[in-house]
Write a protein that binds this DNA or RNA. Structure first.
Lengths: 233, 233
DNA sequence: GGACTTGTGTGCCGGAGGTCATACAACGCG
DNA sequence: CGCGTTGTATGACCTCCGGCACACAAGTCC
């Protein structure tokens, strides 16, 4: 993905006129990281925002007790690192490259300038923040009330691209594979890898999924969706 | 608290010039609710934002399984209901009066107009949203990695007014009482009332707190802070 | 004052999930 | 090629918390 394609596609920035877009690009840079490269760490100062051109990034927090929590997985076309730039405080979480990555790096001052001069961009950013907050609230709700099996089922559906909210009918009959290790999956749910493995294994035995090293393939999306929807006990 | 005092004190709106503030007040209304009154419900349409003049409000979500989760407790001087107004979608959570309340009600269109015409107000709102998000992330982190005792200790400290982040030294030696039922406390942590009671009782026996109907008094803030800080297992 | 509601204190049991240990398969590298 | 690393699979055990049951205390409403 080229920087130009990125700007045209992104909800925050697609409304910029082309002359403004080229000006923004002149003040931006391309940054690249190898797999497992550290884009930034929690408590770092916020230097700017990152638009993903290629590769995959995970946003994580390490707990003091050693465990990792994966907050989001991001791919090409997505922007991250806005939060700390917006309020001028430190990074809340770390960003790590899951694969070789290239980013469009927009320095803090440039991004803030666009915000200040474009009320519609500011409104879009507020909408996006609201969205994060809704998602975050939903995660808290699910984590406190749903058991691991249900949350795992929802996570699989979200990762496979259908029904991010776990709502609605799962009409996709086609199988889809997810490129993720069981350990990462466990970190996304905040549970142990063993538990994830046990659920997946039982689903494999039931013919719902197929498991291979670092990859999961949902065979029966309907059944997984049913598991995700099931009311508590 | 009068509407004027509210506007002068609130971080979003205190920078408005007085002529603009009076204009805003002309388009706003005073709304009152009895104890346990429903200000709005989840999935309602967002009609406007509420500034608390008097009383106490809780923001809650009912899970499908019957349990309640209390997201925030709010008091005079605080604003709520911005989220759904900002992105034009439905309410994420319900707002219930914990005591007789009066609000300054700012209709959606009026609030959005202030945002569009005052970039500094918009920036303040973005900062506030960022703050919510940080808080939300911290809650997720604590909920996944900390046991109930630690989270309860932190909650008590936050409610008693000292060290909202659980960080820093607790230098306040003075005792403070918290007006909350053990059930509400349990709903804030997403655990059962019984567990909350058991921890509190053991702390009472150890002389750390004093318990009466609907009220908790922290006697030894230092010790509670130590419990909150303790590293995992 | 009596009946109802709301809040608190405790015992007991079962289950979900954490931890540890172990084994093994796949991949990566010198 | 052998060896270390990373990922998967599974068993045994233990702990914390949820749920139920019940008792009691303190308000509240008629």
């Amino acid at each position: 993905m080229t920087p130009g394609q990125f700007l045209n596609a992104h909800p925050f920035l697609k409304d910029l006129r082309s002359c403004e877009a080229t000006a923004l690009l002149r003040h931006s840079a391309i940054k690249s990281f190898p797999a497992r490269g550290v884009v930034f760490l929690r408590d770092d100062e916020a230097d700017g925002v990152y638009g993903i051109l290629d590769g995959s990034v995970m946003v994580t927090i390490e707990s003091s007790g050693g465990g990792d929590l994966i907050l989001r997985l991001l791919g090409p076309g997505q922007l991250f690192g806005e939060l700390a730039v917006l309020d001028g405080r430190c990074r809340t979480a770390s960003a790590i490259a899951r694969s070789p990555c290239s980013f469009l790096f927009i320095p803090r001052a440039v991004f803030l300038d666009v915000l200040a001069t474009h009320p519609d961009v500011a409104a879009a950013v507020m909408s996006a923040l609201s969205d994060y907050l809704r998602r975050s609230t939903r995660l808290i709700l699910e984590a406190t009330f749903l058991d691991v099996a249900r949350r795992l089922a929802r996570q699989l559906l979200e990762l496979s691209g259908s029904s991010p909210a776990g709502e609605g009918l799962c009409t996709t009959l086609q199988v889809s594979h997810i490129q993720i290790s069981q350990y990462e999956l466990a970190c996304m749910l905040g549970v142990s890898r063993e538990i994830v493995n046990r659920h997946l294994t039982s689903w494999r035995r039931a013919g719902l999924v197929e498991i291979s090293r670092g990859r999961i393939r949902v065979l029966d999306g309907q059944a997984i969706a049913a598991l995700a929807r099931e009311t508590s006990h």
